[in-house]
Design a protein around this nucleic acid. Sequence first.
DNA 1: CTGTTAGCGCATTCAC
DNA 2: GTGAATGCGCTAACAG
Lengths: 351, 351
Amino acid sequence: MHGYMALVTVTLRTVAAAANVSVSTASRALAGSPLISAETRAVVDARAAELGYRTNRAASALRSKRSHLIGLVLNNFVNQSFHTIADIVQRKLTAEGYQLILSTTDGDPRAEESLLLTLADHGVDGVIIIGSGQNAGVTNTFLEQGMAVVNVIRSSRDSIAPTVLASDRDGAFEATNYLESLGHRRIGYIGGVESADSGRERFAGYADALSRRGIPVDSSLIIQGPFTQEFGASAMAELLARDTGMTALFAANHEAVFGILPVLGANGVRIPQDLSLICFEDMPLLQMWQPPVSVIDNGATQLAELAVDLLLNQIKATTSEGSTPERLRKLTRTYRVGAQLVPRSSTARKV
Amino acid sequence: MHGYMALVTVTLRTVAAAANVSVSTASRALAGSPLISAETRAVVDARAAELGYRTNRAASALRSKRSHLIGLVLNNFVNQSFHTIADIVQRKLTAEGYQLILSTTDGDPRAEESLLLTLADHGVDGVIIIGSGQNAGVTNTFLEQGMAVVNVIRSSRDSIAPTVLASDRDGAFEATNYLESLGHRRIGYIGGVESADSGRERFAGYADALSRRGIPVDSSLIIQGPFTQEFGASAMAELLARDTGMTALFAANHEAVFGILPVLGANGVRIPQDLSLICFEDMPLLQMWQPPVSVIDNGATQLAELAVDLLLNQIKATTSEGSTPERLRKLTRTYRVGAQLVPRSSTARKV
DNA sequence: CTGTTAGCGCATTCAC
DNA sequence: GTGAATGCGCTAACAG
């Protein structure tokens, strides 16, 4: 067995010669073409294995327009959901014979556009995007050119690609409703900006749940801001200073949680005796916090799995049917992954 | 400006025709070859921009043996240091015109080998490995074939590639020494298995620091095990049950920290009054834990930066000098990134 | 079922 | 300084 020990490059030509067949027969045999006799295939496979043959993906991609490369475009690497998604996507793709090109954009639409074009340069077969929503023009062109595209977590207004979203509104409704069911009426809210889908939808869920029970939406209990730890800290401090009679808090801005928790601790706020707390998006930190924090699990794992499935289906369909306008039109669809309440010890009945 | 809107593929040939030059001249101009006159270059650049020309990486890689793709091989996506490294590596590479192919192995040497070969199939220009240490044969062959290789965090006995390591022994020594300087003598240790470099070296640092002050290494204070949360929880419970007079604890197994903290909380152990705690490897959780936990920062950021620099240097050198045996021999070198003590509130003078 | 032919798009020799 | 010619390694018509 010499496999990768061979310093002379072993190409299809080498294998074909060793097997006494033409290069195209060798190619077909290795690709599992049904046009090849069992014996021929066996011989080719055997020689290929002996020689340690490996198909050159660059050559293969150049000819076949299939690179077996998939791009994943993320905002950043801070958010726990993004970790989960990168992990799941990578695992599923590898299992299917694809490799993952990972890049972050810091939420900058121009960096995102540049990155998407670079991915296209590399001939990626598809791209999964947690994006700014600003580059539907680019990705729609990709689709027309036969590249697969899936939006995840963040929608893109004019994108004709399928979109997999979390249930932000429903999850927020459930969180708020849960606090209400525990007897809370003065429920604080620290969330993301309204300009972000998630920020807007979660707030809507919160407000709806209050209205449903006839509880007024009190702006003194509500602070919205950027997705940062610093915002979380200042918002929490502000809310505590306001003396609003708040008995429960819904922390709907994931990044802000990193600022909220220390401020609660530093101010000696006892959870859940003084304040019931529930957060959006689970993470290890919240599981082992003292007390463990109740959360709405946004289903990052399921989001990633569904996104990969949709992508792989597109790739298969494109291969067999091409990208006719009708097929593209049928692609456009929004999928929702349900949120799930995970009650832990940070939430308690109002005394 | 139509750029990516063009549905007809614009190749070098298109650009060359538009600029009234040959394909080779267009290629040289775009590549910044000094052989091209300023006027010609200007014309070619202008036409390329107008046409939205993008170089086909697959074709370029096939011809030039340079894919502008780099592989990063990780054990998993759980460890905080791995997040940091993936993030830094990706950013630096993108800035240099490379894209990152990310994959995890779950520490399985066979999966690792398979992954490395797949990366080679894609013609990656280099690979950064946080590996099992079992595949030096593969990576050494890569080096001989002109691919760049850098080992990070985990060394590989027979690898001739440069290796960037954290200062596990020194960091552990410093952690232990720091606890000693606070008056502690009964210092517990929960760490990784001795078969892992990091596990072995950190324990050595701990033991050395004790010996240096004539403190006996007491096995009843020491538990070593796998890099898991579960191990951390059981080890901590065991240590508490033993009633050893322990006044400080050095948690040297990063993953285990996720199990250690909740058990301490659940048992009502007050930090630092009942127990001083210091951990190896920083993470957001430890910064905002109540009280904030003192750590030894292993310098993941610096590890990643150095690894990328070493990789890029290799790529440049290979391009100009080829991979002569002498050059390869000069590559083999171990770099250490210093650890840093970050005292926070979880450590206090022994009462 | 298999072989022959023909490029994919680019970078690089070799001429001029 | 520029052009013409060549082929990287593979897949996909097109023949038989």
